[in-house]
Design a protein around this nucleic acid. Structure first.
Length: 957
RNA sequence: GCCGGUGUGGCGGAACUGGCAGACGCGACGGAUUCAAAAUCCGUUGCCCCGGAAGGGGCGUGCAGGUUCGAUUCCUGUCACCGGCACCA
């Protein structure tokens, strides 16, 4: 009888075999509900175990299905979760769908198919694909942001913001009813259109207007890029030369009333609390820069036109005020409109008009300074001198007060402008080491000079920059000419979109145009279906929802407005803007704690259990029941993994919502995510010509010498890593890889490619390496002819020792998310124990069944299906999801004898074997006597010998 | 322009606190198996030089310096690539 070739053996671990056993295990574990994690109080919940909440950034389910980037982070968290489960944690590991968004809407516009239909289909595809990877998600907690049962609570949270204000004294959000009560009780004066007036003397409208100015969600006016033809508002980068990027239609810059979030109220806390979380430093820096806190002063410059009015500026360098030789206001500044009316200078009007129609991005493209005098003048309060006021688009209306005092000697932008328009430049700071030459601005710190005026009584000559700033601010404050002031780059968050496929706002407008909330009990405000999703062409912005006229025009009662607010038969118009894509992702991590809760956005007990935990450094103790900064983690989610592209917006917005909810007592922790990790991007190969232009993969061939040429021209091209894209035809489809090798191989390959945080190129050719590893592992444990388990009769002590080391190493590596080196260690172990093809004699090589079972357990987090199958065939019952992480004996990690290098003059000359516990003197004696070393010593006693026991010896001659 | 990150064999990468550079995988080369090929298995593989061989020597972590007995690791300067921000007063 002839032996069949290895590939033809019936139980060979082939791609097809892997697919069969993976699907069988997935079906079995799903039926069993193996990864369902009960909440406190539910049957099967074990309160003795610590909690671990591990979250992936949920995907936007696109019609194209999963790409290879998705499973990278998902595999990483899957490994951690399986490991933590084996280490005895209750693990919350959910998945869901960020399903509102533009692509589905654009598809609907093109085809008329309701976005819900396409989105639901895309979700089904994503779910099927993710399940095929065998990820250990608790699918019973699945959610989608488009579920009415979910967005009901998105709307509810928005209503909490609408019903709250930020109390600057307590630095936290409070219900607006408390503000109203205080105003009424103390009968405070409030600002009205007709000047300050006592609360009791105010009309209902005036009171309402005052409260509206304090809401965390408020109606604000913003200049937007409205494209009448496209019927939508465009982002700045979608506007080129005043026309839409798509289609080249004219774009108008116009003010639009929209819902805003007062995120700027939280600027300081969002900045400070970055110190409380374990996040990548780069991401913290990005957020800090985005918030852009800068300290300085607000200064009033009196106009000299006898009007008694003044111009306010913000400056971070009040110490340079003596050098302020002119002022600049943004073209949109109200003062400019007055100047235009007054001066009648056609050049000024033309400049302002031109600047107004240039989008911000355009403005920033050209750094050439342009501007125009306004004809107005102001008085420098420090010098008493008269200085001109210019308008120029290098000053932005949106930052500070939209006006600056220009100090050309000490600010590069002001310097360039002064040069261009021949304005005076006066040096007022002496910077050590860089004398002022008049050739460029000197923005460093130093000593104030020429900074004294008898006329105004201010003198800071000789002061260093910091005390000079303080002195000027004190002087300004004493004369009520200004004050210390902190400014932020961060703007309030524009939360309205003129789109269909988003959460409707729970807001209606009455006949007078006043807004009123829909009561919580009437939520959700469901998105009505439309016959036609295309945008409305109009000169005045109209969201698509306006087409649902029957829905939009209704009564207060039908809309669910509290009868105490409006009579039920009052006619109202619903808000037809919708929320942006960010809305649903701001709080999904909370909903996962109790996704089916119907009476609250999250069950309070479940939220407390999964989000609140003690710091390890605070020592042992009972699970906390409320947040204590001394002993608790600031952040709830123990590990959040996702792409760095969300480093600013998503993560900043989620932090803002969370802090608001924390202030209102609705969540337990001040931060949402305690630890954050960004996985790197998976790129793909592409080819580059000498002129740096890119060539698609299929137009290139590899030559036998390993170089690449373009097929059509024979021109040499170089291989580079690039983003996967349709045009480069280098997109890898995970389904294909799984069909060929199985999900275990796919998972292992992505984790083995390199460090999780690094961006790395997909190389299809390399996959076979980890596949062969699984094949070897399988062959080590299973007889490929019979499918029966193998097992050496006795344990090889060297293998046993290596197994202990590997258990220790893999555990450590998983903890630090170093999966590539963990897998390398597993490969080394299996290689050391491997039995060659056909060798099934249990007395030679291999591992005992007990050793194989431990190997299966440490392999399980990485390649769960094959590990489960091996363990089951070895006789384990129940599946490895019930197994514990194997223990190791620390004594087994210590070598009795170590090989250490001996260097002479820093050059390696020999390796010597010494007992691990040998003293420095013993090692030195062995090293100096070594025959390989002696010839290099030159016959003289060494000057110095450095011995690091267990490490190395270095001899200096 | 500013901020951040990364540069290690033909390729992906390893080296945890300044202590044997190149673990592990791919590829390549040689061999086994096969009628043959694919697949699989075994071995070799940083580069250069001397040697028939055993063996020996030199160079080497983008580049140039520095600190140190010793540097991929720390410091200074510099170059390249990637990412983010960009007139924020």
């Amino acid at each position: 009888m002839t032996e069949p070739a290895p590939n033809d053996l019936p139980h060979r671990y082939s791609g097809a075999y892997a697919n069969r056993l993976e699907e069988a295990w997935q079906a079995r574990l799903e039926a069993e509900g193996a990864f369902r994690q009960p909440n406190p109080g539910e049957p099967g919940f074990d309160p003795s175990r610590p909690k671990f909440y591990c979250l992936d950034m949920f995907p936007y389910p696109s019609g194209a299905g999963l790409h290879v980037g998705h499973p990278e982070g998902y595999t990483a968290t899957d490994i951690i979760c399986r490991y933590k489960r084996m280490k005895g944690f209750n693990v919350l590991h959910p998945m869901g769908w960020d399903a509102f968004g533009l692509p589905a809407e654009q598809y609907a516009i093109a085809t008329g198919v309701h976005p819900e239909v396409t989105t639901t289909k895309a979700i089904d595809t994503f779910r099927r694909q993710l399940k095929r990877f065998g990820f250990c998600y608790d699918w019973s907690r699945e959610l989608a942001t488009i579920d009415p049962g979910y967005y009901r609570w998105t709307q509810w949270i928005w209503l909490q913001a609408y019903g709250s204000w930020f109390d600057p004294a307590l630095r936290k959000a409070r219900p607006i009813a408390e503000l109203e009560a205080t105003l009424a009780r103390e009968d405070r004066a409030i600002e009205t259109a007709a000047g300050p007036r006592r609360w009791s003397a105010c009309s209902r409208l005036e009171r309402q207007a005052h409260l509206d100015r304090h809401r965390l969600a408020y109606l604000g006016e913003q200049t937007v890029n409205w494209c009448p033809k496209l019927g939508t508002v465009l982002a700045n980068e979608e506007v080129i030369d005043g026309r839409s990027e798509r289609g080249g239609h004219p774009v108008l810059r116009m003010p639009l009333k929209q819902w805003m979030f007062r995120i700027t109220a939280y600027a300081d806390r969002l900045l400070e609390d970055l110190a409380l979380v374990d996040w990548p430093e780069s991401t913290k820096t990005l957020q800090a820069e985005w918030i852009g806190r800068s300290e300085g002063a607000e200064v009033r410059f009196a106009l000299d036109d006898g009007s008694g009015e003044s111009l306010e500026v913000f400056t971070t360098r009040p110490d340079t005020i003596f050098g302020a030789t002119y002022m600049v206001v943004a073209p949109e500044h109200p003062l400019v409109a007055r100047a235009v009316a007054r001066s009648g200078d056609p050049r000024l009007a033309a400049y302002v008009e031109a600047a107004r129609n240039r989008a911000d991005v355009d403005r920033q493209q050209s750094k050439e300074k342009t501007g125009c005098p306004t004809g107005l003048h102001a008085v420098n309060p420090a010098t008493g001198g008269r200085i001109p006021i210019w308008t120029a688009d290098y000053v932005l209306m949106g930052y500070g007060t939209g006006a600056i005092m220009a100090v050309p000697a000490h600010d590069e932008r002001d310097f360039e402008f002064a040069r261009a328009f021949d304005l005076p430049i006066v040096q007022v700071v002496e910077v050590p080491g860089t004398p002022f030459t008049g050739e460029q601005a000197n923005s460093g710190e130093g000593t104030a000079v020429r900074s004294a005026s008898a006329a105004t009584g201010l003198s800071i000559d000789g002061l260093a920059t910091a005390p000079a700033k303080a002195a000027v601010i004190a002087w300004l404050e004493a004369r009520r000419l200004g004050a210390r002031r902190t400014n932020y780059r961060l703007r309030d968050w524009l939360f309205s979109r003129q789109r269909y496929w988003g959460e409707p706002f729970p807001i209606v407008y009455d006949a007078e145009g006043l807004h009123h909330p829909v009561s919580a009990s009437a939520l959700p405000v469901a998105l009505p279906p439309l016959a036609d999703y295309s945008p409305i062409e109009s000169d005045s912005p109209q969201p698509p929802l306006a087409k649902a006229a029957d829905w939009a025009r209704t009564t207060a009662g039908a809309a669910g407005v509290d009868p105490a607010v409006l009579p039920p038969d009052a006619p109202v118009v619903r808000e037809t803007n919708t929320m942006p894509g960010w809305a649903g992702s701001c709080w999904y991590y909370l909903r996962y704690c109790s996704p089916r809760a119907i009476d609250r956005f999250v069950d309070a007990g479940a939220e407390r259990y999964w989000m609140l935990s003690r710091r390890r450094s605070a020592g042992a103790g009972p699970a906390p029941d409320r947040f204590d900064p001394a002993t608790c983690h600031a952040g709830g989610v123990d590990l959040y993994v996702g792409g760095a592209e969300h480093a600013v917006l998503h993560l900043l917005y989620a932090r803002f919502w969370h802090k608001m909810l924390f202030d209102l007592g609705l969540v337990s922790t001040p931060e949402p995510m305690g630890r954050l990790f960004h996985q790197g991007m998976i790129t793909s190969f592409a080819y580059q010509r000498r002129d740096k232009s890119l060539v698609a993969v299929d137009l290139v061939e590899e030559r036998s010498d390993g170089t690449f040429v373009e097929k059509a021209t024979g021109e040499a091209v170089t291989q580079i890593a690039a983003k996967m894209s349709k045009s480069l035809r280098n997109v890898v489809n995970p389904d294909d890889v799984i069909a060929e090798h199985g999900a275990d191989t796919f998972r292992l390959y992505e984790m083995y490619m390199g460090p999780l945080e690094a961006s790395k190129p997909w190389n299809t050719r390399d996959i076979v390496g980890v596949f062969r590893f699984l094949q070897r592992t399988w062959r080590l444990a299973i007889d490929e002819r019979t499918g029966e388990p193998l097992g050496a009769a006795t344990a090889d002590p060297a293998i046993e020792k290596l197994l202990h080391r590997t258990i220790a190493k893999v555990g450590e590596d998983i903890e630090r998310l170093a999966f590539n080196t963990a897998i390398a260690a597993l490969i080394e172990l299996v290689n050391a124990a491997t039995r060659p093809t056909g060798m099934t004699d249990p007395t030679r090589g291999g591992m005992t069944r007990d050793q194989l079972e431990r190997l299966a357990r440490i392999l399980w987090p990485f390649a769960p299906h094959v590990a489960d199958e091996i363990a089951a065939r070895l006789g384990a019952t129940g599946g490895l999801h019930r197994a514990a992480w194997p223990s190791f004996d620390p004594a087994m990690l210590v070598e009795d004898e170590v090989e250490i290098p001996v260097q002479v003059q820093g050059k390696l000359r020999a390796r010597i074997k010494v007992p691990a516990k040998a003293s420095a003197a013993e090692i030195e004696a062995i090293a100096l006597g070594d025959p390989q070393v002696v010839p290099h010593l030159g016959g003289r006693p060494p000057k110095k010998v450095i011995v690091v026991p267990g490490r190395m010896v270095n001899v200096v001659t």
